[in-house]
């Protein structure tokens, strides 16, 4: 137990995580590409036309994975922020900062693809229903987190302030998820959930899940890339960064 704890803490230090992350990135890229190609192929070439929405429903293969990731990344970000707040581990705050821009991007994509889906199907680019409004608030939470951290020079204080904002904002996630159940919304209910059988044809479902996996792997790869940059930036005065960087220069 003690030994395992030690191991965990070993990788929790930026110094040992930096090369580890570097080694993991290509693997996650490969997985993202494999799942992405398979999911898009199934979704755009194999999955049948939808009875209600014709070919327009194919936006689902991007919209739902983006929306899932927008919420999931926020939860992971808040998790790391909380760990950093409680245990004062340096790497946790860096992880939270590395995840925020990707989460914001997926939130934007969920809103964008949603608008492009809503216009032909519902008849409106945007409506102020509970699902859409709460997702927009998620976007502002990400932007607020990023802006707040950018506004504070001392990284430790920036991490702390960001963590508090991130944790307060967690309330919004169940609101987004359950909004279609709790209130009358124009947005339809969930097609896929843990509590009931999915209401989608099998090929459509498989394509959507593969795309979601691809987005997930992409997020990990991109967050690891970004966290490496953050580590270098914040630890630039340490001896190991000096060695690391000079070694990289010699290798080139």
């Amino acid at each position: 137990m003690n030994n395992r704890l030690l191991n965990w803490f070993k990788f929790a230090s930026p110094q040992s995580f930096f090369p580890l992350a570097g080694k993991m990135i290509p693997g996650f890229w490969a997985l993202a590409v494999i799942f992405g190609v398979a999911g898009l192929y199934l979704g755009f070439f194999v999955a049948p036309t939808d009875a209600q929405q014709g070919e327009g429903y194919r936006i689902i293969f991007l919209h739902v994975p983006a929306a899932w990731m927008s919420m999931f990344i926020y939860l992971v970000m808040a998790f790391w922020a909380a760990i950093g707040l409680i245990y004062k581990t340096r790497l946790s705050g860096m992880m939270a900062s590395a995840l925020a821009p990707t989460g914001a991007m997926f939130t934007f994509l969920a809103l964008w693809t949603g608008a492009f889906w809503g216009k032909p199907m519902w008849g409106a680019w945007w409506v102020w229903d509970a699902r859409l409004t709460s997702e927009l608030i998620l976007f502002f939470l990400y932007i607020g987190f990023i802006a707040l951290q950018a506004a504070i020079d001392d990284p430790r204080r920036a991490d702390k302030a960001g963590a508090i904002l991130a944790l307060v904002g967690v309330v919004n996630i169940p609101i987004i998820y359950f909004s279609v159940k709790w209130w009358n919304t124009l947005h339809q209910g969930a097609s896929v959930s843990l509590t009931k059988a999915p209401s989608m044809a099998q090929t459509m479902l498989l394509a959507m899940l593969l795309c979601a996996l691809a987005f997930w792997m992409y997020s990990v790869a991109v967050a690891l890339m970004r966290v490496r940059g953050i580590i270098l930036e914040r630890e630039r005065n340490s001896e190991w960064v000096k060695q690391q960087v000079t070694m990289a220069a010699a290798g080139r």
Partner: peptide, 18 residues
Amino acid sequence: SEVLAKHDENYMPPEAAK
């Protein structure tokens, strides 16, 4: 002044719907 269509969360090929 505005009419919006509300669709459900079921996705299936036309044959299955029929």
